[in-house]
Amino acid sequence: MSVEFDEAHPPMIEVPRSMPPRRVPRTSRGNFELYAWLFMRVSGMLLVVLVLGHLFIMNILDGGVQRINFAFVAGRWSSPFWQTWDLLMLWLAQLHGANGMRTIINDYTRRDTTRFWLKMLLYAASGLVLFLGTLVIFTFDPTI
C-alpha cells in the first residue's frame, strides 16, 4: 500500500505533461477563471440539497416515478416554494453543467476551430435550456 503523506512528503501537484500554449494571450481574462472556480463550489453546495431532494421526492417518495403526470406537476407548481426550488435548480444546474462542459472542451480539443464551434454549440444549447425552462415555470397554465 502507499505511504501516508507526512511532513517530509506533502501532497504535491506535479508539472503538467501537456505542452504549454504556443502563444500567451496578450490580454488577460481578468479573474473570470477564479470566479468560475468559486461558482462551481458555491452552486455545487446548493445543488447537493436541491438535486438530491428533487431526486428523492420524484423517484422514491410515495409512488416514485409511477405517480408522475400532468396533474402531479400542476399540483406542485401551484406552490411558489416548488416554483422557486425548480427555477433555482434549473439555473444553478445548467450554469454548473455548462461550465463543467466548457472545462472538458478546453481540455480535450486540439484545433482552435473545433474548440470554438463546440463551445458555441454548448452556449446555444445552454441558452435554449435556460430560456425554455424559465418560460415554462413562469407561464405554466394548469387549466390548459
Binding site: 403526470n69 406537476v73 445548467q94 425554455l132 425552462g133 418560460l135 415554462v136 405554466f140 390548459i144
Partner: peptide, 14 residues
C-alpha cells in the same frame, strides 16, 4: 428540461 417543457403543449403530450 425539453420533456418537462411539454406541460406547456398539452397534458396529453406530457
Amino acid at each position: 428540461v425539453l420533456d418537462t417543457a411539454l406541460v406547456r403543449v398539452s397534458p396529453d403530450s406530457y
